[in-house]
Amino acid sequence: MRTPAPATVAPVAPAVSLDLESRAWIEALGDQGAARDDAIARLHALLLRAARFEVGRRRPTLPHLRGNELDDIALEAADDALVSVLARLEDFEGRSRFSTWAYKFALLEAAVKLRKRSWQGREIPLEPESWSLFADRGSSPEDDAEQSELLREIREATESVLTPHQRRVLVAIALNGVPIDVLAERLGSTRGALYKTLHDARQKLRAHLAARGLAIDLPEGGKRHG
């Protein structure tokens, strides 16, 4: 475990009352000396559990990584998440349990590291080489015709209405499946900035299709209970 700098963690003044377990976490982490050291060790164990959970979920998609590499990624993720959690303790408002709040940092760190490791050394496809994969068959000849027209319009619109940067980002993420944080690292950008670019590009495409009277109302996706 990487030892975080001795922190000057001010006790949090939550916006809502905390449950007992969350309050115990906040008080212990705001304590001093051995009590705080013990709380940090317990927090690291909690974060490591979440990081290992994420690694376990993704393991089937990462056959080229050995077990000890995955263990190292989980440990690094827990270390980095610990630093993030301690630095952002004052952001915890008690709107969830502390453990749920802390878990998301470990899951994020582990997911980002795994996506980057998965794409390490791979070329990032920025060209629309996968359009043909979208032209599969629908459920009926009528669907085929409608979807073919829609795809043709979308493909043409990516060339005619998007900026080069919007086109690269849309193609890489939405068409070629490049993870957004991998793309952000390669382009020297951030996940938030790239998602805004992607969102703007999608809005432009939707407006373009609507202006041509093409129906683009998609059924609501299923909820992701897992």
Binding site: P179, R224, H225, G226
Partner: peptide, 19 residues
């Protein structure tokens, strides 16, 4: 969550862990 694959994945993981 439906538009951002990365956030969607992280949501699925947190939901699975907490559930």
């Amino acid at each position: 969550l439906e538009g951002c694959p990365a956030c969607g994945e992280e949501h699925e993981s947190l939901l699975a862990l907490v559930a």
